[in-house]
Design a protein around this nucleic acid. Sequence first.
DNA 1: GTTCTAGAAC
DNA 2: GTTCTAGAAC
Length: 197
Amino acid sequence: MKRKAESNTSKSVDLDKSHWSAGLLKSMKDPECIVKEDDKIIVIKDKYPKAQFHYLVLPKEDISSIWQVKRNHQDLLMHMHNIARDLVEKQTDHEFIIGYHAMPSMQRLHLHVISTDFNSPCLKTKYHWNSFTTPFFLHSSDVSRQLHEEGEIKKVSPERCKEYLNTQLKCHKCTLQPKNMPALKRHILTHIDKQKQ
DNA sequence: GTTCTAGAAC
DNA sequence: GTTCTAGAAC
């Protein structure tokens, strides 16, 4: 009852620990989810992995998103990147990308570490696909360089984010533009098979 | 973030 | 008739 009344304003939704957007905060406290942990960060497995391997690196410090990151967090971002690199090195037979979503929907800064097979039943929508394969995905190395050279991360407008998410489907490994998600999902399997041969 | 499902697309 | 996408969720 109380929660319902409070959730009428957007600000109280942000603070509501029972709201779905607080899901990562819950996962960070769940031993079942935790892959690795040190004094500054926690690594968890994505609850709905969009590829064969999909981890999230989160700082323990309460940073809500990439857009709250300033120069004073340079070392933290480098540390998160190094942790990600360590995870990637364990799977020498898989390619990975490491980065942030330009418009994240979950609370707490989180670095995606995801294999580029994108072979997962949880990957269902154009939004999912474009969030990893268009400039909506901010590569960690670019973000860190920008923070170092410019002192801040160049904001991607909500309008631009929506453009990226609505981009026509395109294979990340070739020029094919499949007509829909099922066609794309069938197609990317052919790239995986080629690697194995 | 996901789930559900109406109705568009085929 | 079936597949697929897109928008609401109190």
